[in-house]
């Protein structure tokens, strides 16, 4: 798949000396949903802001659809719809006017039919003549998405789209995002809800302290996720794993008082039953056992800690 956004050696140092982005390299593929995960202050919003033209980069370059974001900013920005994290709205405008304004701002001719479709898709049609100030938080969020979609972008940035949004609405938002992807729109979303990334993304990138520390297919990450570890506490210390148990690939821990066994929950059989009977045959007695699952959250937390 060809990449639609290409970020190379991008850095941003703010006037205060704070280094928000440190030599970022990232390619976003056309048509994918890319989730950018990271703790607060990791540089997610600065990265998006730089790609969209809101923040001037200190060094490095970005192309969008092959257009440089500085020398060819018109072509680059015309492709992008941006939904920022904060609810920035013109309180006194009506929904219809503010969404139409966005379309004009992006240089597109008037198209009431398209605006109507966007508002209907986002369940805002019956609010089209309401002033934005009268809407609830969730509706305002959808108005901002409508503004971003008003000019038919090929790329949509959603910065924390479901922060502070109730479960019902979050599911609705995911639905909208999927429909957009089917229509060929590339979507980049930032989130710190792991489950959101799990649910939505094709690929996941992890950013912390201004650096991208991991980019991987979600499938690959999920494979790691499917792994579970069984820990068996032994009644008596053993010095070595009996050769008969070699196929299980067991590990000794806690000075011979524990045996650990890694298995795949997604496999047809986990092998636990036969392991337990083989252990008994080998004369190893168990006092206790427990299992743990490595979640995306664990991977994420350990990655962020390590960096």
């Amino acid at each position: 798949m060809s990449s639609v956004i290409s970020v190379s050696n991008l850095s941003k140092v703010y006037g205060s000396g704070f280094k928000a982005l440190n030599n970022i390299n990232l390619d976003i593929k056309r048509g994918e949903i890319f989730a950018l995960l990271g703790p607060n202050g990791a540089g997610k919003t600065t990265l998006i802001g730089t790609i969209c033209g809101i923040v001037n980069p200190t060094s490095g370059s970005v192309t969008v659809g092959g257009h440089d974001i500085i020398s060819d900013f018109r072509a680059a920005r015309a492709m992008i719809g941006l939904v920022p994290q904060e609810l920035h709205t013109d309180s006194f405008e009506t929904v219809w006017n503010t969404v139409s304004f966005s379309r004009g701002l992006f240089g597109k001719p008037k198209n009431p039919a398209h605006i109507e479709k966007v508002l209907k898709d986002l369940s805002l049609w019956d609010k089209k003549d309401s002033q934005i100030i009268t809407l609830s938080g969730g509706m305002k969020r959808r108005v901002m998405i409508a503004k971003a979609l008003s000019h038919e972008p090929q790329i949509l940035f959603l910065d924390e789209p479901t922060a502070g949004v109730d479960v019902e609405l979050r599911k609705g938002m995911w639905e909208v995002v999927r429909t957009l992807q089917q229509a060929g729109v590339t979507i980049i979303l930032t989130t710190h809800y792991i489950e959101e990334a799990e649910e939505m993304a094709d690929r996941i990138g992890v950013i912390t302290k201004g650096e991208i520390i991991l980019v991987e297919d979600k499938a690959g990450l999920m494979q790691q996720l499917g792994k579970k570890r069984l820990t068996l506490q032994l009644q008596h210390k053993v010095d070595a794993i009996p050769p008969a148990l070699a196929p299980y690939n067991l590990h000794l821990a806690d000075g011979g008082r524990e045996i650990t066994y890694d298995y795949d929950t997604k496999g047809e059989r986990t092998g636990i039953t036969s392991l337990l009977s083989d252990l008994r045959n080998a004369g190893i007695r168990i006092s206790d056992l427990d299992t743990e699952q490595s979640s995306l959250e664990d991977i994420f937390v350990s990655l962020v800690r390590k960096s």
């Binding site: 969209c52 033209g53 809101i54 900013f73 018109r74 072509a75 680059a76 920005r77 015309a78 992008i80 941006l82 920022p84 904060e86 920035h88 709205t89 013109d90 966005s102 701002l105 992006f106 240089g107 503004k147």
Partner: peptide
């Protein structure tokens, strides 16, 4: 904060 839209527009 609505300036974001002006700055990100072509």
């Amino acid at each position: 904060g609505t300036i974001y839209e002006i700055l990100s527009a072509p």
